[in-house]
Simulated assay, not measured.
Amino acid sequence: MPTHQSRGAAPEPRRTDARLNRDRLVEAAHEEFAASGPGASLNRIAQRAGVGPGTLYRHFPNRQALIAAVLTDRIERLTAQADLLIGSEGPDEALARWLGALLAHARLHHGMGSALMIEGAHGAGTDCRQVVLDAAERVLARARTHGSARPDLDAGDLVQLVVGIALATAHGSGADQPDRLLALVLDAAAARPDTSPTRPGSRRKRV
């Protein structure tokens, strides 16, 4: 006769399988959306994940839910990368590498974010934006403290510039143009003597 403990433990393998299926679906959706855009076939996503369409719809009742899950997953990875770089790289290198990762993310996923907003899932888009801004502020604040980034540089402005590069180079740009534009942004973000706050009486006298 099965014990009470064995009956209570039985659902755990099913929960583990469900988590694995969800993770496979999110990864497969990321790959399909990257290749075909937010309108990629859901049946192909299920096939790539090795599950049936019914399993996909049990986890994600509609396309918007799947897109939101993919964006959330990728943004979590992006913010985790920010913290990893803060702990392992110098301030300048961490800022440059993370902004490069943000640019790659924005170029790959800007269509998905637009699809979410069109479909009305405003909450997911807003939450993701704030998470990205918080990560940008952590990386930028370290560079400011080190004295290598402009003290008047705002994290929101910096993110907007990088996203602007992604949008501007989405179609018809040279392969190296996004990186060249990002290099210009990084150069503009670097601290210089004339970007430090002016103290009273510190202005040079005219000769």
Rank of each mutant, 00 (worst) to 15 (best):
G50V: 06
G50E: 07
G50D: 06
G50F: 08
V51P: 04
V51R: 07
V51S: 01
P53C: 00
P53M: 11
P53F: 07
G54R: 15
G54E: 13
G54H: 12
T55Q: 04
T55R: 13
Y57V: 03
Y57D: 09
R58C: 01
R58W: 06
H59N: 14
H59Y: 12
F60K: 01
P61G: 14
P61I: 04
N62A: 13
N62F: 09
R63I: 10
Q64H: 05
Q64F: 00
A65I: 03
A65P: 00
L66Q: 10
I67N: 03
A68Y: 09
A69R: 00
A69Y: 03
A69P: 02
A69N: 02
L71H: 02
L71Q: 09
D73K: 03
D73P: 00
R74C: 09
R74S: 10
R74M: 07
R74F: 05
I75G: 00
E76L: 06
L78S: 10
L78A: 05
T79V: 15
A80V: 06
Q81P: 00
D83S: 10
D83G: 02
L84I: 04
L84A: 11
L85D: 14
L85Q: 11
L85R: 12
I86C: 10
I86F: 07
G87I: 07
S88E: 14
E89A: 15
G90Y: 10
G90S: 13
P91Q: 02
P91S: 06
P91L: 01
D92S: 12
D92C: 02
A94Y: 08
A94H: 09
L95K: 00
A96C: 04
A96L: 05
A96W: 04
R97D: 14
R97N: 13
W98L: 05
L99P: 08
L99I: 06
G100D: 11
A101W: 01
A101D: 11
A101L: 02
A101T: 02
L102V: 08
L102T: 08
L103M: 06
L103C: 09
A104D: 15
A106L: 07
L108T: 15
L108F: 01
